Amino acid sequence: MIDINEVKRVYSLAKLNIREDELEIMKNKFNTVLEFANSIMEVDTEEVDMLEMVSNHKSVLREDNVEKSVDREMALKNSTDREYGYFRLKKVVE
């Protein structure tokens, strides 16, 4: 279960602001998602054949066209941390 401190931590990592009156609402939403994910993990799939590829799937690929990219400085202008011309990110997963 996620508590309010964890909600604050997630928002901080995402560099988002959250109002105090929204914390409880977001905590409940996060926990609803986690409960749903946990319920999926509890489904017995022992007798279910593995599905490796969907046979009727048609992948329509677009032509790969080279186009003008966003200027590097423009892309990095709101970055709070950069190094060697790239975004520098903190390690999130431990």
Score class of each variant (00 low, 15 high):
28 N>T: 06
81 D>W: 03
73 E>L: 03
76 L>P: 04
71 D>M: 07
41 M>C: 00
25 I>W: 12
81 D>N: 11
72 R>E: 10
77 K>C: 08
12 S>R: 14
74 M>V: 15
86 Y>W: 11
7 V>K: 01
84 Y>K: 15
9 R>P: 00
43 V>G: 00
8 K>V: 11
57 H>W: 00
59 S>C: 07
42 E>N: 07
92 V>I: 14
41 M>F: 00
8 K>M: 11
45 T>M: 04
30 F>R: 04
93 V>G: 03
19 R>A: 14
64 D>K: 14
55 S>I: 05
15 K>D: 15
72 R>A: 03
2 I>N: 03
2 I>K: 03
74 M>C: 11
36 F>H: 10
71 D>Y: 06
92 V>T: 14
61 L>G: 03
55 S>C: 05
11 Y>F: 13
87 F>H: 15
89 L>I: 10
33 V>M: 07
40 I>L: 12
36 F>S: 08
4 I>N: 02
56 N>V: 07
61 L>K: 13
81 D>V: 10
85 G>H: 02
21 D>R: 13
46 E>P: 01
40 I>N: 09
5 N>P: 01
13 L>C: 09
61 L>V: 10
3 D>T: 08
36 F>N: 07
5 N>M: 00
83 E>D: 14
76 L>D: 05
49 D>T: 11
60 V>F: 02
45 T>E: 04
47 E>Y: 06
88 R>S: 15
75 A>H: 09
67 E>A: 05
84 Y>M: 12
34 L>G: 05
71 D>R: 08
79 S>L: 06
32 T>F: 10
70 V>H: 11
3 D>C: 04
22 E>F: 06
26 M>F: 12
69 S>T: 14
59 S>I: 15
63 E>C: 05
34 L>P: 03
60 V>L: 07
19 R>E: 15
91 K>Q: 15
27 K>H: 03
1 M>N: 10
38 N>P: 01
20 E>L: 01
4 I>E: 12
71 D>K: 12
49 D>V: 08
68 K>Q: 12
34 L>W: 03
19 R>M: 12
21 D>T: 12
64 D>S: 11
20 E>G: 02
